[in-house]
Design a protein around this nucleic acid. Structure first.
Length: 346
DNA sequence: ATTATTTGACCAGT
DNA sequence: ACTGGTCAAATAAT
């Protein structure tokens, strides 16, 4: 398959850098196992960082090309999308309107579980605040609207909609819009740890949005959602965020110290990663095998139209992949590395 | 007191 | 006029 905006040479270079990174990480792993000297480990870490930085740099340049390509395409939504002002509480509505249109949007479906005590809608790594609920024409269940808790504090425009599937009430349709620009202390790592250690405080939200419009008495469910932290079964998730197996293996030592043994970071996903680049990747043929049906793929679209608003800008983020700060930015599109590996090795 | 949720009203797009 | 999305006052929870 062909990756947009990336020629063979670039692919090759990235492949080399990432492979080298993997090798070095493996070396580091064995050194750590042998409890080798600090200098050796530090040297390896430096090399690993260097490799990944180079690869990321290359990915970034090609990702920018991808953005441009996306912008040229006319956006299409497969969910109703009336472009009303998302943030009409802000002063300049005329400006905001454009921004609203620009917000990337994607959907995922997750299956709820009746056993585990995890609140799905609030447990995707971000803190959300419900700001509305609406009965949707033709839908059996109401749609709940959430926005980032830090909207006002940090101007984070991320929102999401949660709605039960008509066909299967155990499946939730979640539509995310906009990416998080806030600094959430409770992203991936924190949120996940809290998941594994304690159920955390419960909110009433799920009790509400899970109710069907017609009271049939049967729908009084106590089920709670699991976003596939190893306990629930994710039906579909677009785009899924997966630690590249290579990268993940490489940093296993580190991860083991950070995450519970029953690693909730499965190969599938551990965190919502709303990275439109991976949506770009979804349009590639090879993604079909990864992400299920084509109809579902078409649910995703994004139309970032500004650099600041474009999640591609995320590649500007520092990949603080150091051992003393292995705190993955949840917005970092690690899945694209996986995708690239897939493509490179095919 | 502070923060979160509920819910009817409002608004923009179609 | 209808619909989906958001606001914001009232209410509930902490």
């Amino acid at each position: 398959m062909e990756i947009l905006g990336m020629d063979c040479e670039q692919k090759s270079l990235i492949n080399i850098e990432l492979t080298q990174g993997k090798e070095l990480a493996n070396q580091l792993k064995s050194q750590l196992d042998q409890k080798s000297g600090e200098e050796i480990c530090e040297g390896l870490v430096e090399k690993i960082l260097s490799s990944y930085e180079k690869a990321l740099s290359m990915l970034k340049s090609s990702a920018n090309l991808l953005t441009t390509t996306l912008e040229l395409e006319s956006p299409h939504s497969f969910t109703s999308d009336s472009p009303t002002s998302e943030i009409s509480d802000q002063p300049h509505k005329n400006i905001v309107f454009k921004k609203r249109k620009a917000l990337p949007r994607w959907s995922e479906q997750v299956q709820v579980s009746s056993e585990k005590g995890l609140e799905g809608p609030t447990r995707d790594g971000y803190s959300w605040r419900k700001y509305g609920q609406k009965d949707i024409l033709g839908a059996r269940f109401p749609r709940a609207y959430y926005r980032c808790t830090h909207r006002h504090a940090q101007g984070c425009l991320a929102t999401k909609q949660v709605q039960k599937s008509d066909e299967d009430p155990s499946i939730l349709g979640i539509t995310y819009r906009g990416r998080h620009t806030c600094n959430q202390t409770s992203h991936l790592t924190t949120a996940s740890v809290s998941l594994s250690l304690s159920p955390g405080k419960k909110t009433k939200e799920r009790e509400i949005w899970q109710q069907p419009k017609q009271e049939d008495g049967i729908q009084k469910q106590t089920e709670e959602m699991v976003v596939n932290f190893g306990t629930g079964s994710k039906v579909e998730r677009f785009p899924s965020f997966s630690f590249p197996s290579t990268l993940f293996e490489s940093s296993q030592n580190v991860e083991n110290n950070l995450f519970p043994k029953n690693n909730f970071i499965s190969q599938e996903t551990s965190e919502s990663n709303y990275f439109p680049l991976s949506q770009c990747c979804c349009s590639s043929s090879h993604m079909n095998t990864t992400f299920g049906s084509e109809s579902d793929l078409t649910e995703i679209w994004s139309a970032p139209n500004s650099v600041t608003n474009s999640p591609i800008g995320d590649l500007d983020l520092d990949l603080d992949f150091s051992l003393d700060q292995v705190d993955f930015d949840p917005n970092f599109p690690l899945d694209i590395l996986d995708h690239f590996f897939t493509s490179l090795n095919s």
